[in-house]
């Protein structure tokens, strides 16, 4: 008796789900919405600003080539290499800027915490796949580009369950 009613109860709670909306995110058509423009860091207060830890963004007009980001990454993934750039900036005497290898990066954001000049931030861009290993290495010029990511889906909760809408 207990067994039969227990099984019926279990089946019943499964059947109720026929009426519940689908929760799955249909990924390439729908894309998740994130808070803010990516993880940033304020070196004055020493506290970060919440956001997705995605691909980096480098502000060439602020980077001084101090290599602190590269030193921070040394013990983590050794993803940052300092490379020569052709541009001339008065704050960057050596004309070197970080180049990031996303085949190695673990997206911890500790390089952003290390940059004292507001030059390196992270963005919402997470679609970094490439057909070759070289394609994963982002040069300072590529890192300068502001990504344009479509963000439309968010978790919505109603009486009929949660959905990505």
């Amino acid at each position: 008796m207990g067994t039969a009613s227990g099984i019926i109860k279990a089946l019943n709670s499964g059947i109720k789900h026929l009426a519940i909306k689908r929760f799955t995110l249909r990924y390439p058509e729908q894309k998740l919405k994130f808070v803010g423009d990516g993880y940033q860091f304020d070196p004055v207060s020493g506290v970060g600003i919440a956001g997705l830890k995605g691909r980096h963004m480098l502000f060439h007009d602020k980077c001084t080539g101090c290599q602190l980001c590269s030193i921070a990454c040394e013990g983590i993934a050794e993803a940052i290499a300092m490379v020569k750039v052709d541009e001339k900036w008065k704050q960057n005497k050596k004309s070197i800027m970080p180049q990031i290898d996303y085949g190695k990066c673990v997206f911890c954001g500790l390089c952003v915490d290390a940059c004292p000049f507001y030059a390196l931030y992270m963005t919402n861009d997470y679609e970094l796949s490439s057909f070759s290993k070289e394609g994963l290495i982002y040069t300072p010029a590529q890192l300068q580009v502001k990504p344009n990511i479509k963000q439309d889906a968010e978790i919505k909760i109603s009486d009929r369950g949660a959905t990505h809408g």
Binding site: V35, G36, V47, A50, G51
Partner: peptide, 8 residues
């Protein structure tokens, strides 16, 4: 690392 975002 960072504070909670607004309306979290």
């Amino acid at each position: 690392r960072n504070d909670m975002p607004s309306n979290f």
